[in-house]
């Protein structure tokens, strides 16, 4: 028996919104530790890694490890039926081929449930080695989304370069070039507005705008975003989900011929 209750169903809805551009379907791996998902987009350029800890749920029970393959468009339809303040309870029997979502309004005066068919998906999991990153940038997630959106107008790729002076985002294309430089700023009163850089050595890498833009769909999940970079290693873009876990995106760099 699997049962997970989340008072803020909107958090799960935000996770779905953040990954549905990249993935059509995905397997949710449920264990006593929580819910995990790891899946690559169809072109194998980016990877989504979601970790929701069991103790972040308001109730969590998983008697037997369970892999639930879901069509994310269908799952999106189910969550579209939920109210912003609803509580969600997910339930599945052992070896079941369906999962049930029950939504309860805050006042408990409306209860709806939706049963969705599960899918058998060929899971391809990658082993991601621990990496000592050359630089780790933490910045407001809204600022990151804004920069990626702005620079995407200029070209298909963005160069992210980081030195001890700060981080620079650059794009170039037919109409010209764009550069945005951010210096470190520590705002002790408003931690979420800070830009912090933990630098071991300078690094500059090129990434496709299309994927970076998709990642920024996770902006509503977290005030801050963490970018981890290292030469010749995929970029890690991480959004912490308060009290529940994290959503990470990995993106393979563009490499000069």
């Amino acid at each position: 028996m699997f049962e997970a209750r989340l008072v803020n169903s909107s958090t799960f809805r935000k996770v779905l919104d953040a990954i549905k551009d990249l993935l059509n379907e995905a397997s949710f791996d449920c264990s006593e530790n929580g819910i995990q998902l790891q899946a690559m987009d169809s072109s194998h350029v980016s990877l989504v890694s979601l970790n929701l800890k069991s103790d972040g749920f308001d109730k969590f029970r998983c008697d037997r490890n369970l892999t639930m393959g879901m069509n994310l468009t269908s799952l999106g339809k189910v969550f579209k039926c939920s109210g912003a303040d609803d509580t969600v309870t997910m339930k599945a029997q052992d070896y079941a081929d369906t999962v049930t979502f029950m939504f309860e309004s805050k006042k408990q005066d409306k209860i709806s449930d939706y049963e969705m068919k599960l899918m058998n998906l060929d899971q391809e999991h990658l082993g991601i080695p621990d990496t000592e990153f050359s630089c780790i940038i933490k910045m407001p997630s809204i600022e990151f989304a804004r920069i990626i959106r702005d620079l995407s107008q200029f070209g298909e790729s963005i160069v992210i370069s980081c030195t001890k002076e700060g981080v620079k985002f650059s794009a170039q294309g037919d109409i010209g070039t764009g550069n945005v430089k951010l210096a470190q700023t520590h705002n002790f009163d408003k931690e979420e507005e800070s830009v912090t850089i933990d630098l071991q050595e300078p690094v500059a890498l090129t990434f496709a705008c299309q994927y970076l833009n998709s990642f920024t769909k996770a902006t509503p999940l977290s005030n801050q975003v963490k970018l981890s970079m290292c030469e010749n290693v995929p970029l890690v873009v991480e959004y912490q989900i308060p009290e529940l876990g994290h959503l990470r995106f990995y993106l393979a760099p563009k490499i000069e011929e």
């Binding site: 990658l126 082993g127 991601i128 080695p129 290693v233 995929p234 990995y250 563009k254 490499i255 011929e257």
Partner: peptide, 14 residues
């Protein structure tokens, strides 16, 4: 121009 690499060239399949 830079070529797009894939993740499978960095990470091993489990």
């Amino acid at each position: 121009a830079a070529n797009q690499s894939t993740l499978t060239s960095f990470f091993k399949r489990k």
